[in-house]
């Protein structure tokens, strides 16, 4: 098995783990971490699957760099909103959806 394929398989395993965490976890910090895990999974697939005969392809590396910037921005936004929610309610979980 080539290293590229190994990266891609690890990525394919990380992605559903992260997605499940994002959906099922209640603690907001855990959900933010889960999102980052999910993103890393997608990045690994992107970089790993594109390697042919263990020669790295520069295009997906550039894409992943862009993706990391997006993920950092999203994480920062999620953390800022979480801090605000914590300051207002003292909790680190989303309240139950209001049924009115």
């Amino acid at each position: 098995m080539s290293t590229g394929l190994l990266f891609a398989l690890v990525g394919a395993a990380l992605f559903p783990l992260g997605a499940a965490g994002l959906l099922l976890q209640r603690h907001l910090l855990r959900r933010i971490l889960a999102f980052n895990l999910m993103g890393s999974g997608a990045f690994l697939v992107l970089v790993g699957l594109a390697q042919r005969q263990d020669v790295p392809d520069p295009v997906p590396q550039a894409m992943v760099l862009t993706g990391i910037v997006v993920a950092v921005a999203a994480t920062a936004l999620a953390l800022a909103l979480t801090r605000r929610l914590h300051a207002l309610t003292g909790r680190l979980e989303l309240p139950e959806a209001a049924h009115d």
Binding site: A8, L22, V45
Partner: peptide, 24 residues
């Protein structure tokens, strides 16, 4: 906003994985 953020991130995460597979 947080609920919306998690939904939108999950959606675009799935889209990104799709793009990764297509590039592969």
């Amino acid at each position: 906003a947080l609920r919306y953020l998690f939904a939108t991130l999950l959606g675009s995460g799935a889209y990104l994985l799709g793009v990764a597979l297509i590039y592969g």
